[in-house]
């Protein structure tokens, strides 16, 4: 490996996976390659260490445009790998100094990576988010006639909001339950930060499901069906995928 170059790791695929098509990696001057070793294969691309080093890279990540480019290329390479078979996605900014370093990692992590690949075989990740659209407080009421009237209205609103919240929570638990039943695995992400959970379109569910490729259409149909049922509650569903299994690779790595 040329001096001053490191290797950016995108993810790990099965040892007999097809090689990537010629495409530039996170550094546009270097293409994506496959390093096969220890019965596995790593998707990598060379990066110049002056731009991708310990000091320069964190700086680059503070620039939203550069971060966007890195994130999109990283995900794009993994998406392509996913078309050929299971892929264990690595978090961005995993960089090795040499091919030998990458191979050592493969040997060290082999048991974990192999187990994860087996778990992911024939499956992909789907994201489901639920948003509350509209809801209490959205309708502009006439100004209160008096202070008493205002306070009475506030109390009623608060009581109504608490009931609505309980109804919503129960609906979301049922919704997640239905989707989880259909999936091999499921992950619930924490709710988004409260300071931005304004009422218009606040996200109330952020989940990922590991779904068998053969059942992708069935899963899609289920989401569409549930979306129809929940629309009346002011809940809108958003389905994304298939994704490389970002949510289903982490826990098993040592």
């Amino acid at each position: 490996m040329t001096d001053g170059l490191g290797l950016w790791v995108y993810g790990v695929v099965e040892g007999d996976a097809a090689g990537p098509t010629t495409r530039p990696g996170v550094d546009p001057d270097h293409d994506v390659e496959l390093i096969r070793h220890a019965g596995l294969a790593v998707v990598v691309s060379p990066v110049p260490l002056d731009a991708f080093g310990e000091h320069s890279l964190p700086e680059a990540l503070e620039d939203l445009e550069r971060l966007e480019t890195l994130a999109r290329v990283h995900n794009g390479v993994l998406q392509e790998a996913l078309e050929h078979g299971p892929v264990v996605p690595f978090r961005i900014c995993t960089i090795f100094g040499s091919v030998a370093g990458v191979k050592d990692m493969l040997v060290r992590q082999r048991a974990h990576l192999t187990a994860v690949l087996q778990h992911l075989h024939g499956r992909a990740e789907w994201g489901v988010k639920a948003y509350v659209v509209g809801g209490p407080g959205d309708t502009a009421a006439a100004s209160p006639a008096s202070g008493t009237e205002y306070l009475r209205r506030r109390r009623a609103e608060r009581a109504g909001a608490a009931t609505a919240q309980r109804t919503m929570d129960a609906a979301l638990v049922r919704l997640h339950g239905r989707l989880r039943e259909r999936a091999a695995d499921a992950v619930l992400n924490p709710p988004p930060p409260t300071e931005l959970s304004g009422r218009a379109g606040a996200m109330v569910l952020n989940a990922a499901y590991l779904v068998a490729d053969g059942d992708a259409d069935g899963f899609r149909a289920l989401v569409a069906d549930l979306a129809g049922r929940h629309r009346a509650d002011g809940v809108e569903l958003e389905l994304t995928g298939p994704w490389p299994a970002y949510h289903f690779s982490e826990a098993m790595a040592g």
């Binding site: 978090r91 090795f96 982490e250 790595a253």
Partner: peptide
């Protein structure tokens, strides 16, 4: 998300 493995 994704696997966290320390690189060089």
């Amino acid at each position: 998300k994704g696997v966290v493995i320390a690189g060089d």
